[in-house]
């Protein structure tokens, strides 16, 4: 990826994503955290576009920003009065240490050249969306079906759990 446009787009989106992610964990206000999370989702969607994965871009906005983030904000609203703040728990120091060391490990692995530093993207024989459809419905049709069942089960489970007991 060497053209000017995508490179600029990558850097802008990457910075936005990381800053917003820091905002998610750093913000004192849970509602702000949720808004930051949405920004992360949108920035990641933009990154998909940079990687010319349009279908994932659409799905990411729709599912993450349109549904999951909305659900989370809804949860924040409904449970607001008890948990106004977004404090760290007791184990924040070990958590920080773990996260940092994991990052160091991954950075070292990457720096050691675990993956070829390719800057060229593979050319697509046909449109990205068609390819995804082929991938989903040919080699991965079984996982696809399983994922559907998982979604269905999750939906039913969520309804059952969150339903108010009657009587």
């Amino acid at each position: 990826m060497t053209e000017l446009g995508p490179v600029i787009a990558f850097w802008v989106l990457a910075v936005v994503a990381v800053v917003a992610a820091v905002g998610v964990v750093g913000s004192r206000n849970l509602f702000h955290s949720a808004i930051f999370l949405t920004v992360v989702f949108l920035a990641v969607a933009g990154l998909y576009l940079v990687l010319s994965s349009d279908f994932l871009f659409g799905v990411q906005i729709m599912v993450y920003a349109g549904a999951i983030a909305v659900l989370i904000v809804f949860a924040v609203m409904l449970t607001h009065n008890i948990q106004a703040g977004n404090q760290e728990g007791r184990q924040w120091i070990p958590a920080l240490g773990l996260a940092l060391s994991l990052f160091v490990v991954m950075a070292v692995v990457l720096a050691a050249g675990a993956f070829p530093a390719s800057s060229t993207m593979a050319a697509l024989p046909e449109s990205n969306t068609t390819l995804i459809a082929r991938a989903l419905f040919n080699p991965y049709v079984l996982p696809f079906e399983i994922a559907s069942v998982v979604l269905l089960v999750a939906m039913i489970g969520a309804i059952v759990i969150a339903r108010e007991e009657r009587g």
């Binding site: 409904l78 449970t79 009065n81 108010e164």
Partner: peptide
């Protein structure tokens, strides 16, 4: 909404 939330006035 069948969610028990904080009742508010």
């Amino acid at each position: 909404m069948a969610l028990k939330t904080e009742p508010f006035v």
